[in-house]
């Protein structure tokens, strides 16, 4: 149980954010009304996705340095888990946008950016499928992963700031901090983010361990 404390922490943080997110007071805003509570559930998806992609890049760098196939497995499983979170983020975002902005896919730089980032990581998976040899696949996909990551960061962080966006914090919209005047939302939001990131990391490690087991059983046969 000594090593599992962070998993329990993840469960507690997410549960706490659910309770506090539904019961706690929120600023009264036009258009958004009660749906401001979605901040506790929709935004953490994107944060966990980014952290998982970051883990993937770190392990790709590690792989290129060491040549250890375990690092490559970690990198690909982080991407796999990150894509799941990305789809959750897109789906929840579309539901939310449908009632507040009037359409599920408004032409917004953040939306388009995240769609392109999804394409980038799907391309990473396609690239992996195209290569058969294990060492070569690991090496080439690691190179692509590291090559694509900074451009994705530009895409998701810098471009929306340059253009008008419906999302807070860009194009003249007020930031999240200004909306949250009584600072009540902040702790709930951060605990939700940390909880979901830990959950994502947990799922990722489970997939990683399963992959290692698969590899082991393949070798024995």
């Amino acid at each position: 149980m000594r090593k599992n404390w962070w998993k329990i922490l993840a469960a507690c943080l997410v549960s706490a954010s659910v309770v506090a997110g539904f019961i706690g007071p929120v600023p009264e805003l036009h258009i958004l009304n009660e749906s401001i509570r979605n901040v506790y559930f929709h935004v953490p998806m994107w944060f966990s996705m980014l952290i998982l992609y970051l883990i993937s890049v770190i392990y790709s760098v590690k792989y290129l340095n060491s040549g250890d196939i375990k690092h490559d497995i970690m990198a690909v499983e982080a991407v796999n888990t990150g894509i799941i979170f990305c789809f959750f983020g897109l789906l929840t975002g579309m539901q939310w946008a449908n009632i507040t902005w009037g359409e599920p896919w408004p032409n917004d730089p953040k939306l388009n950016g995240s769609a392109i980032a999804t394409l980038m990581y799907l391309a990473y998976l396609v690239l992996r499928n195209a290569l058969d040899e294990e060492q070569k696949r690991a090496k080439i996909s690691a190179v692509y992963n590291i090559f694509a990551f900074p451009i994705m960061v530009v895409l998701l962080y810098i471009l929306p700031k340059l253009t008008d966006s419906l999302h807070p914090g860009s194009g003249g919209n007020s930031t999240f901090g200004e909306l949250d005047m009584d600072n009540y939302m902040r702790p709930v939001f951060y605990s939700a983010v940390v909880g979901w990131i830990l959950t994502g990391a947990w799922v990722c490690t489970i997939r990683y361990r399963l992959r290692l087991l698969e590899n082991k059983s393949n070798k024995i046969q």
Binding site: A11, V14, S15, F22, I23, I206, R209
Partner: peptide, 23 residues
């Protein structure tokens, strides 16, 4: 509503824990 969602979330985490144990 909170109870329903909490049940789902906690159930999901228990499920994750059992998978973890199996692995």
């Amino acid at each position: 509503v909170v109870g329903v969602i909490l049940t789902i979330v906690i159930g999901m985490y228990i499920y994750l824990f059992t998978i973890d144990k199996r692995v």
